[in-house]
Protein backbone atom coordinates (compact mmCIF):
# COMPACT_ATOMS: atom_id res chain seq x y z
CA UNK A 1 0.00 0.00 0.00
CA UNK A 2 1.59 3.22 -1.06
CA UNK A 3 -0.56 6.31 -1.19
CA UNK A 4 2.43 8.51 -1.88
CA UNK A 5 2.57 6.98 -5.36
CA UNK A 6 -0.54 8.94 -6.25
CA UNK A 7 0.49 12.25 -7.71
CA UNK A 8 -2.38 14.68 -7.18
CA UNK A 9 -1.21 16.96 -9.97
CA UNK A 10 -1.23 14.20 -12.54
CA UNK A 11 -4.47 12.88 -11.13
CA UNK A 12 -6.16 16.22 -11.66
CA UNK A 13 -4.71 16.51 -15.14
CA UNK A 14 -5.99 13.10 -16.22
CA UNK A 15 -9.33 13.81 -14.64
CA UNK A 16 -9.74 16.71 -17.08
CA UNK A 17 -9.11 14.35 -19.98
CA UNK A 18 -11.36 11.64 -18.61
CA UNK A 19 -14.21 14.13 -18.20
CA UNK A 20 -14.11 15.75 -21.64
CA UNK A 21 -16.14 13.33 -23.77
CA UNK A 22 -18.98 12.99 -21.31
CA UNK A 23 -18.99 16.72 -20.68
CA UNK A 24 -19.40 17.69 -24.32
CA UNK A 25 -22.13 15.13 -24.87
CA UNK A 26 -23.92 16.23 -21.71
CA UNK A 27 -23.84 19.89 -22.76
CA UNK A 28 -25.59 18.95 -25.97
CA UNK A 29 -28.22 16.95 -24.12
CA UNK A 30 -28.63 19.84 -21.69
CA UNK A 31 -29.73 22.11 -24.52
CA UNK A 32 -32.06 19.42 -25.84
CA UNK A 33 -33.66 18.93 -22.44
CA UNK A 34 -33.86 22.65 -21.79
CA UNK A 35 -35.95 22.78 -24.96
CA UNK A 36 -38.26 20.24 -23.36
CA UNK A 37 -37.11 17.17 -25.27
CA UNK A 38 -35.71 14.02 -23.69
CA UNK A 39 -33.45 12.23 -26.14
CA UNK A 40 -32.27 8.93 -24.67
CA UNK A 41 -30.30 8.20 -27.84
CA UNK A 42 -27.09 9.90 -26.70
CA UNK A 43 -25.15 6.63 -26.68
CA UNK A 44 -26.22 5.87 -30.24
CA UNK A 45 -25.23 9.31 -31.47
CA UNK A 46 -21.92 9.19 -29.63
CA UNK A 47 -20.88 5.87 -31.10
CA UNK A 48 -21.90 7.03 -34.57
CA UNK A 49 -19.86 10.20 -34.08
CA UNK A 50 -16.96 8.06 -32.88
CA UNK A 51 -16.77 6.05 -36.10
CA UNK A 52 -17.61 8.85 -38.53
CA UNK A 53 -15.03 11.09 -36.89
CA UNK A 54 -12.50 8.28 -36.90
CA UNK A 55 -13.10 7.46 -40.56
CA UNK A 56 -12.96 11.09 -41.64
CA UNK A 57 -9.78 11.73 -39.69
CA UNK A 58 -8.10 8.64 -41.13
CA UNK A 59 -9.03 9.52 -44.72
CA UNK A 60 -8.25 13.21 -44.51
CA UNK A 61 -5.29 12.85 -42.19
CA UNK A 62 -6.70 15.69 -40.16
CA UNK A 63 -8.24 15.25 -36.72
CA UNK A 64 -10.04 18.58 -37.13
CA UNK A 65 -11.88 17.27 -40.18
CA UNK A 66 -12.71 14.22 -38.10
CA UNK A 67 -14.35 16.27 -35.39
CA UNK A 68 -16.36 18.31 -37.86
CA UNK A 69 -17.52 15.14 -39.61
CA UNK A 70 -18.45 13.62 -36.25
CA UNK A 71 -20.56 16.68 -35.42
CA UNK A 72 -22.30 16.49 -38.79
CA UNK A 73 -22.84 12.74 -38.40
CA UNK A 74 -24.23 13.06 -34.90
CA UNK A 75 -26.54 15.87 -35.97
CA UNK A 76 -27.63 13.87 -39.00
CA UNK A 77 -28.55 10.88 -36.89
CA UNK A 78 -30.39 13.09 -34.43
CA UNK A 79 -32.53 14.33 -37.32
CA UNK A 80 -34.12 10.88 -37.37
CA UNK A 81 -35.12 11.40 -33.77
CA UNK A 82 -36.35 14.90 -34.56
CA UNK A 83 -38.47 13.58 -37.42
CA UNK A 84 -40.02 10.92 -35.22
CA UNK A 85 -40.72 13.03 -32.18
CA UNK A 86 -41.39 16.47 -33.66
CA UNK A 87 -43.04 15.63 -36.96
CA UNK A 88 -44.56 12.20 -36.39
CA UNK A 89 -45.14 13.06 -32.71
CA UNK A 90 -43.86 9.68 -31.53
CA UNK A 91 -43.03 8.98 -27.91
CA UNK A 92 -39.63 10.37 -27.00
CA UNK A 93 -38.53 7.60 -24.65
CA UNK A 94 -39.14 4.87 -27.21
CA UNK A 95 -37.67 6.90 -30.07
CA UNK A 96 -34.52 7.59 -28.10
CA UNK A 97 -34.02 3.93 -27.29
CA UNK A 98 -34.61 3.03 -30.93
CA UNK A 99 -32.01 5.62 -31.93
CA UNK A 100 -29.42 4.01 -29.68
CA UNK A 101 -30.13 0.57 -31.11
CA UNK A 102 -29.91 1.90 -34.64
CA UNK A 103 -26.77 3.91 -33.95
CA UNK A 104 -24.93 0.93 -32.45
CA UNK A 105 -25.75 -1.16 -35.52
CA UNK A 106 -24.92 1.60 -37.98
CA UNK A 107 -21.57 2.38 -36.36
CA UNK A 108 -20.38 -1.19 -36.40
CA UNK A 109 -21.37 -1.57 -40.05
CA UNK A 110 -19.48 1.57 -41.01
CA UNK A 111 -16.58 0.59 -38.81
CA UNK A 112 -15.88 -2.80 -40.33
CA UNK A 113 -12.89 -1.62 -42.30
CA UNK A 114 -11.34 0.49 -39.56
CA UNK A 115 -10.19 -2.01 -36.97
CA UNK A 116 -6.49 -1.93 -36.19
CA UNK A 117 -5.85 1.45 -37.83
CA UNK A 118 -4.09 4.24 -36.01
CA UNK A 119 -5.72 7.66 -36.47
CA UNK A 120 -3.67 10.85 -36.92
CA UNK A 121 -2.38 12.18 -33.62
CA UNK A 122 -3.70 15.34 -32.06
CA UNK A 123 -0.89 17.36 -30.53
CA UNK A 124 -0.99 18.52 -26.96
CA UNK A 125 -1.00 22.29 -26.90
CA UNK A 126 1.55 22.86 -24.13
CA UNK A 127 0.62 26.51 -24.02
CA UNK A 128 3.87 28.47 -23.81
CA UNK A 129 4.66 30.13 -20.49
CA UNK A 130 1.43 29.03 -18.87
CA UNK A 131 2.34 25.37 -19.07
CA UNK A 132 5.49 26.06 -17.11
CA UNK A 133 3.69 27.42 -14.06
CA UNK A 134 4.32 24.98 -11.25
CA UNK A 135 1.36 22.84 -10.23
CA UNK A 136 -1.20 24.71 -12.34
CA UNK A 137 0.79 24.32 -15.55
CA UNK A 138 0.66 20.53 -15.73
CA UNK A 139 -2.92 20.41 -14.49
CA UNK A 140 -4.43 23.05 -16.73
CA UNK A 141 -2.25 23.95 -19.66
CA UNK A 142 -0.86 20.81 -21.22
CA UNK A 143 -3.90 19.30 -22.86
CA UNK A 144 -5.14 18.84 -26.36
CA UNK A 145 -7.39 21.42 -27.98
CA UNK A 146 -10.62 19.52 -27.40
CA UNK A 147 -10.28 19.70 -23.62
CA UNK A 148 -10.32 23.49 -23.90
CA UNK A 149 -13.10 23.35 -26.45
CA UNK A 150 -15.20 21.49 -23.87
CA UNK A 151 -14.67 24.20 -21.29
CA UNK A 152 -15.33 26.90 -23.86
CA UNK A 153 -18.56 25.13 -24.73
CA UNK A 154 -19.64 25.30 -21.09
CA UNK A 155 -19.13 29.06 -21.16
CA UNK A 156 -20.91 29.45 -24.49
CA UNK A 157 -23.90 27.36 -23.45
CA UNK A 158 -24.13 29.29 -20.21
CA UNK A 159 -23.97 32.65 -21.99
CA UNK A 160 -26.47 31.47 -24.57
CA UNK A 161 -29.02 30.36 -22.02
CA UNK A 162 -28.58 33.25 -19.67
CA UNK A 163 -27.98 36.28 -21.81
CA UNK A 164 -29.30 35.75 -25.31
CA UNK A 165 -32.81 36.18 -26.53
CA UNK A 166 -32.60 32.86 -28.36
CA UNK A 167 -31.65 31.19 -25.10
CA UNK A 168 -34.63 32.74 -23.39
CA UNK A 169 -36.93 31.50 -26.12
CA UNK A 170 -35.43 28.01 -25.89
CA UNK A 171 -36.05 27.92 -22.18
CA UNK A 172 -39.58 29.21 -22.64
CA UNK A 173 -40.27 26.40 -25.08
CA UNK A 174 -38.97 23.89 -22.58
CA UNK A 175 -40.93 25.29 -19.67
CA UNK A 176 -44.28 25.62 -21.35
CA UNK A 177 -44.61 24.84 -25.01
CA UNK A 178 -48.26 25.81 -25.15
CA UNK A 179 -47.53 29.29 -23.87
CA UNK A 180 -44.46 29.64 -26.07
CA UNK A 181 -46.55 28.68 -29.06
CA UNK A 182 -49.21 31.17 -28.08
CA UNK A 183 -46.54 33.85 -28.02
CA UNK A 184 -45.74 33.00 -31.61
CA UNK A 185 -42.52 31.02 -31.15
CA UNK A 186 -41.93 28.16 -33.55
CA UNK A 187 -41.82 25.38 -30.99
CA UNK A 188 -41.09 22.57 -33.42
CA UNK A 189 -38.39 24.45 -35.31
CA UNK A 190 -36.61 25.43 -32.10
CA UNK A 191 -36.75 21.89 -30.80
CA UNK A 192 -35.42 20.41 -34.03
CA UNK A 193 -32.47 22.79 -33.89
CA UNK A 194 -31.85 21.91 -30.25
CA UNK A 195 -31.97 18.20 -31.04
CA UNK A 196 -29.46 18.68 -33.84
CA UNK A 197 -27.16 20.63 -31.55
CA UNK A 198 -27.41 17.77 -29.07
CA UNK A 199 -26.57 15.28 -31.80
CA UNK A 200 -23.56 17.31 -32.93
CA UNK A 201 -22.21 17.52 -29.38
CA UNK A 202 -22.72 13.81 -28.82
CA UNK A 203 -20.89 13.15 -32.09
CA UNK A 204 -17.93 15.30 -31.01
CA UNK A 205 -17.88 13.61 -27.62
CA UNK A 206 -17.81 10.21 -29.31
CA UNK A 207 -15.02 11.28 -31.65
CA UNK A 208 -13.00 12.43 -28.65
CA UNK A 209 -13.10 8.85 -27.39
CA UNK A 210 -12.09 7.28 -30.70
CA UNK A 211 -9.57 9.93 -31.78
CA UNK A 212 -7.93 11.14 -28.59
CA UNK A 213 -8.69 9.20 -25.51
CA UNK A 214 -8.15 5.72 -26.81
CA UNK A 215 -7.34 6.22 -29.90
CA UNK A 216 -8.62 3.40 -32.04
CA UNK A 217 -11.92 2.12 -33.37
CA UNK A 218 -13.67 -0.78 -31.68
CA UNK A 219 -17.32 -1.71 -31.86
CA UNK A 220 -19.33 -0.37 -28.96
CA UNK A 221 -16.28 1.50 -27.70
CA UNK A 222 -18.20 4.30 -26.02
CA UNK A 223 -19.27 1.60 -23.56
CA UNK A 224 -22.07 3.47 -21.84
CA UNK A 225 -20.60 6.99 -21.75
CA UNK A 226 -23.79 8.25 -23.40
CA UNK A 227 -25.85 7.02 -20.49
CA UNK A 228 -23.52 8.68 -18.04
CA UNK A 229 -24.00 11.91 -20.00
CA UNK A 230 -27.73 11.61 -19.39
CA UNK A 231 -27.11 11.14 -15.69
CA UNK A 232 -24.78 14.10 -15.72
CA UNK A 233 -27.42 16.47 -17.10
CA UNK A 234 -29.71 15.53 -14.25
CA UNK A 235 -26.91 15.73 -11.73
CA UNK A 236 -26.18 19.22 -13.03
CA UNK A 237 -29.85 20.09 -12.63
CA UNK A 238 -29.77 21.48 -16.18
CA UNK A 239 -27.11 24.10 -15.42
CA UNK A 240 -23.99 24.29 -17.62
CA UNK A 241 -21.45 25.04 -14.89
CA UNK A 242 -22.66 22.14 -12.87
CA UNK A 243 -22.15 19.93 -15.91
CA UNK A 244 -18.49 20.91 -15.73
CA UNK A 245 -18.38 20.23 -12.03
CA UNK A 246 -20.26 16.96 -12.37
CA UNK A 247 -18.09 15.75 -15.24
CA UNK A 248 -14.98 16.35 -13.15
CA UNK A 249 -16.58 14.63 -10.21
CA UNK A 250 -17.66 11.61 -12.28
CA UNK A 251 -14.30 11.51 -14.05
CA UNK A 252 -12.62 11.98 -10.69
CA UNK A 253 -14.33 8.96 -9.20
CA UNK A 254 -13.07 6.81 -12.08
CA UNK A 255 -9.53 8.12 -12.03
CA UNK A 256 -9.29 7.98 -8.25
CA UNK A 257 -10.58 4.42 -8.24
CA UNK A 258 -7.85 3.38 -10.68
CA UNK A 259 -5.23 5.25 -8.68
CA UNK A 260 -6.23 3.60 -5.43
CA UNK A 261 -6.10 0.18 -7.05
CA UNK A 262 -2.68 0.85 -8.52
CA UNK A 263 -1.49 2.01 -5.14
CA UNK A 264 -2.38 -1.44 -3.85
CA UNK A 265 -5.45 -0.50 -1.87
CA UNK A 266 -8.19 -3.09 -2.09
CA UNK A 267 -11.38 -1.22 -2.74
CA UNK A 268 -14.81 -2.59 -3.55
CA UNK A 269 -14.78 -1.52 -7.20
CA UNK A 270 -18.45 -2.29 -7.79
CA UNK A 271 -19.59 -0.05 -4.99
CA UNK A 272 -17.37 2.79 -6.08
CA UNK A 273 -18.57 2.41 -9.67
CA UNK A 274 -22.20 2.78 -8.64
CA UNK A 275 -21.54 5.91 -6.61
CA UNK A 276 -21.99 8.45 -9.45
CA UNK A 277 -25.47 7.09 -10.08
CA UNK A 278 -26.39 7.11 -6.42
CA UNK A 279 -25.06 10.64 -6.05
CA UNK A 280 -27.19 11.66 -9.03
CA UNK A 281 -30.30 10.28 -7.38
CA UNK A 282 -29.49 12.11 -4.16
CA UNK A 283 -28.97 15.33 -6.07
CA UNK A 284 -32.32 14.82 -7.76
CA UNK A 285 -33.99 14.49 -4.39
CA UNK A 286 -32.27 17.59 -3.02
CA UNK A 287 -33.07 19.58 -6.15
CA UNK A 288 -36.69 18.59 -5.99
CA UNK A 289 -37.20 20.80 -2.94
CA UNK A 290 -36.58 23.80 -5.09
CA UNK A 291 -39.02 24.89 -7.72
CA UNK A 292 -38.36 24.72 -11.42
CA UNK A 293 -35.49 22.26 -11.27
CA UNK A 294 -36.31 20.35 -14.42
CA UNK A 295 -37.83 21.87 -17.54
CA UNK A 296 -41.57 21.57 -17.06
CA UNK A 297 -42.35 20.26 -20.54
CA UNK A 298 -39.56 17.67 -20.48
CA UNK A 299 -40.47 14.61 -22.50
CA UNK A 300 -43.96 15.80 -23.39
CA UNK A 301 -45.16 15.72 -26.94
CA UNK A 302 -46.21 19.02 -28.44
CA UNK A 303 -48.86 19.36 -31.07
CA UNK A 304 -50.04 22.78 -32.05
CA UNK A 305 -53.78 22.47 -32.02
CA UNK A 306 -55.42 25.14 -34.10
Amino acid sequence: MDLSAINPILLLASLMVAATAVMIAALGELIVERAGVLNLGVEGMMITGAIIGFAAAVHSGSPAVGFVAAAVGGAGLSLLFALLTQVALANQVASGLALTLFGLGLSSLIGQGYVGIKPPVIPKLNIPLLSDIPVLGPILFRHDMVVYFGILLVVLVWLFLKYTRAGLVLRAVGENHEAAHALGYKVVRIRVLAIMFGGACAGVGGAYVSLVRVPQWTEGMTAGVGWIALALVVFASWKPWRVLLGAYLFGGVTVLQLNLQAAGIAIPVEYLSMSPYLITIIVLVIMSNRRSASPASLGKTFHAAQ
Partner: peptide, 9 residues
Protein backbone atom coordinates in the same frame (compact mmCIF):
# COMPACT_ATOMS: atom_id res chain seq x y z
CA UNK B 1 -29.44 -4.67 -35.21
CA UNK B 2 -30.01 -1.85 -37.70
CA UNK B 3 -33.08 -3.58 -39.10
CA UNK B 4 -34.47 -3.86 -35.59
CA UNK B 5 -33.84 -0.17 -35.10
CA UNK B 6 -35.59 0.58 -38.38
CA UNK B 7 -38.59 -1.54 -37.42
CA UNK B 8 -38.97 0.59 -34.32
CA UNK B 9 -38.57 3.82 -36.23
Amino acid sequence: QMVQGMLLF
